Amino acid sequence: MIHNEVRKVEYYKALVEKRTDYEGVFYVGVTSTGVFCRPTCPARKPKYENCEFYQTAQQALLASFRPCQRCRPLSHPNHVSDIVRLLVEAIEQNPEKRWKAQDFRALSIDESTARRQFKKRFGMTFVEYARARRMGLALKSIRSGEKIINTQLASGYDSSSGFRDAFSRIMGAPPTLLDDNRILKADWLDTQLGPMIAIADENELYLLEFVDRRGLEREIERLRKSLKAAIIPGRTEPIRSIEQELTHYFDGSLTEFKTPLRLLGSAFQQLVWEQLRQITPGETHSYADIALALGKPTAYRAVAQANGANQLAIVIPCHRVINSDGKLGGYGGGIVRKEWLLHHEKQGGSPCEKST
């Protein structure tokens, strides 16, 4: 159990605010109910004096707390609800279907609930998810040589202009202008510190970020525009690879990532990112250290900018770079996650023992 009073006050504030960047960092045992929860639990918040904080779910269990049935602290941070699972399966059974109100009623699902839960899980409503899935199939059909008019009708669009508009909104270009070599797929990965999004083609990983990172939508849009690429829901071999490697990283059995990467940046940025990969897990370097190692001792500000431009969180370990005065500095995924990652690596992958 955590006894440090400053840390407890910080964690209680995060609990009240349902801070997603504290996922996996602590669990709270509620003495008045006997349950323990994750930081983002939707239940009514307990009083401060009724809270005990733990670094792992195992510690909370050993302290005789039982897992909360609402936030399910023993599952992934964004546990897939039965409604989401059922609807995703229904889409896969008939991905070209245009959903109507009676289709939800037939499954005894409230349409507004489906919208809300899909928005929380995927960052898009159920209708947007189903449309993106249809458009992904349309793109595959077009690439295989199918006539656009046939693809349009199969996707449920009677109007060619409506089909082109919908296609362009999701894919970033009308169907006649897409480059076969610019198709990226995006998938959601659950991790111990919260959900991440991975974007890759069939050969390399382009982006890996925490879903709640500020400005993520703009980051993805810049990626799409710079590559003139379509980004559609899906999974490729690099995404499967990085998901497996992240699992091993968080359980402490992996320190070196081998998933093939595509580094999109200037020559200087790529030099900085390569230098970051040379930092041994459990160690930290300052921006000035990186600049010196590159033979550009006055370029520490440029190093900091390159560090911030990294789009491959954890894999390109920008979390291992700190200020010269020893302070943690910034981190796109949040300072709390940066601190957790550094402690995790210093402990050799074992659960963090910050303040007990």
Rank of each mutant, 00 (worst) to 15 (best):
R98S: 02
H344Q: 09
L216G: 05
Q347R: 10
G215E: 11
T125A: 09
S81M: 06
R213D: 06
W273T: 07
A114I: 06
C352W: 03
D187C: 09
I290W: 00
G326K: 13
L271N: 02
H79Q: 11
T236N: 05
H3D: 07
F163C: 03
I170A: 09
P67A: 12
P195M: 10
E283S: 10
Q244V: 08
T20R: 10
Q278G: 01
P281M: 12
A14H: 07
K97A: 11
Y11Q: 08
E52D: 05
G34V: 11
Q93F: 01
N94I: 02
K97D: 03
R214V: 13
L62A: 13
D165W: 04
N150D: 15
T125M: 05
A302T: 12
S160Y: 05
M135N: 02
H344N: 05
R115W: 07
Y331V: 05
F210I: 06
G348V: 08
H319Q: 14
K185T: 05
A302L: 12
Q311G: 04
Y300E: 11
L264A: 10
L263P: 05
R224S: 02
K228M: 08
H79M: 06
A309P: 01
S324D: 14
D325M: 08
R133N: 02
G330T: 14
A166S: 15
V25W: 00
V303D: 05
S286K: 03
D165K: 14
F167E: 03
C41T: 03
V30M: 01
G172W: 01
Q69I: 12
F65V: 06
T151N: 02
Y22L: 08
N50K: 10
T191P: 00
Q152R: 14
P233F: 05
N150K: 10
L294A: 04
K140S: 09
A90H: 03
I322F: 07
A63M: 02
K338V: 08
W188P: 00
L223G: 04
P281T: 11
W273A: 08
T125Q: 04
E5L: 12
D180M: 04
E345F: 01
G215A: 10
Q59E: 15
D289G: 04
I231M: 05
G333F: 01
V25K: 02
Q69K: 14
R38P: 01
L205T: 10
L263D: 04
H344G: 06
G332C: 04
R182A: 15
C318T: 09
R301W: 11
L342N: 09
P174I: 13
K147F: 06
P46D: 02
I142H: 03
Y249D: 04
K327D: 11
E353Q: 12
D251W: 03
K47F: 06
I170Q: 07
L261H: 03
K258R: 15
T125V: 07
I220M: 08
A186H: 01
I2S: 01
S155T: 14
V25D: 00
A43S: 13
V80D: 04
K346A: 15
V6Y: 09
C71D: 07
D251L: 06
R44M: 08
A198P: 04
R301Q: 14
V35F: 12
K18R: 15
